[in-house]
């Protein structure tokens, strides 16, 4: 597959503080890529650079082969963006909010109802944006990002502050866009979200990418114990080495009907991040 988003040694500093320090990324077309890091790690800064809202101090970023500092209006239409600090016209209804952008993009009126339907807001079309719940507000922002049917979606913490049900609705929308072949670049500090949605992730700390790969790969890489944890029906737990030597013992436990659950001991992303940086991911 072709590379949709590529960065080479991106650096950005605000004053004396290096926010991004040599970021290299290759994101393939059609994948969901997650950039994970605690607040202030530089995730939003990178999205701003990739979408042409901010210029980097050094390095180059490309979207579909075009330097992000030279993106034209037509190229801008190929990506949709939602950021936490992107506002809505609160007095205007959901449909009126989208109508503004339909006019700007020269889209027909049915693009408004299509976008609202896609995020499940058809019934709220006439509700003022200021009266929507946080989850619905998030979905309306997604609808706005979907209006031009963009090839790439940049989603900056799309479920930040949402309850699990609202977050799950947004996850379904993101996955349905991936199924349509869209590329999604999302930032999050929620490891479960990354594990659920992302094909590849990068862990960002102090402006540097400290780990890169699929969530499962990364977790396996940091499984220092390499053990199997078996919970028995009698309530006891036992550990076996995660290798060929354990095969016979494990088979016997299963055959005797003693093993209730079997788990590997690889850590979750939160633990990996903690090991790599000494910081909590959700900080």
């Amino acid at each position: 597959m072709s590379c949709t988003i590529k960065t080479e040694r991106i650096t950005k500093a605000f004053g004396a503080r290096n926010v991004l320090d040599g970021i290299d990324l290759d994101i393939r077309s059609g994948e969901i890529f997650g950039l994970l890091g605690p607040s202030g790690a530089g995730k939003t800064t990178l999205i701003k650079i990739l979408t042409g809202q901010l210029s980097q101090d050094g390095g180059t970023a490309y979207i579909n082969g075009t330097d992000t500092r030279k993106l034209s209006g037509a190229e801008h239409r190929k990506f949709g963006i939602t950021m936490d600090n992107f506002g809505l016209y609160e007095r205007l209804s959901c449909a009126e909010n989208l109508k503004i952008f339909a006019r700007i993009y020269g889209l027909p009126n049915n693009s408004i109802s299509d976008a609202l339907a896609k995020v499940g807001l058809s019934d709220a079309a006439k509700t003022p944006a200021g009266k929507l719940s946080k989850g619905m507000t998030g979905r309306l922002k997604l609808a706005r990002a979907f209006m031009t049917d963009p090839d790439i979606l940049f989603l900056d913490e799309p479920t930040n502050g949402l309850d699990p049900v609202s977050a799950d609705e947004i996850h379904k929308i993101i996955l349905s866009e991936k199924a349509r072949g869209k590329t999604v670049f999302l930032t999050t500090h929620t490891m479960t979200e990354a594990e659920k949605l992302c094909d590849n992730i990068a862990l960002l700390s102090d402006g540097k990418i400290v780990e890169y790969g699929t969530p499962a790969e990364i977790c396996r890489r940091y499984d220092h114990q390499r053990m199997l944890k078996i919970h028995l029906y009698d309530g006891q737990d036992m550990m076996l080495p995660h290798n060929r030597d354990a095969a016979a013992a494990l088979a016997a436990l299963i055959e005797d009907g003693k093993a209730e659950t079997i788990h590997t001991t690889e850590p979750d992303l939160e633990t990996v991040f903690m090991e790599l940086t000494g910081k909590e991911l959700s900080a």
Binding site: F86, L88, Y89
Partner: peptide
């Protein structure tokens, strides 16, 4: 203040 201007600018206005 409401960051709607930023969205307009990002929409090529």
């Amino acid at each position: 203040e409401k960051n709607t201007l930023r969205v307009l600018m990002m929409s090529n206005v």
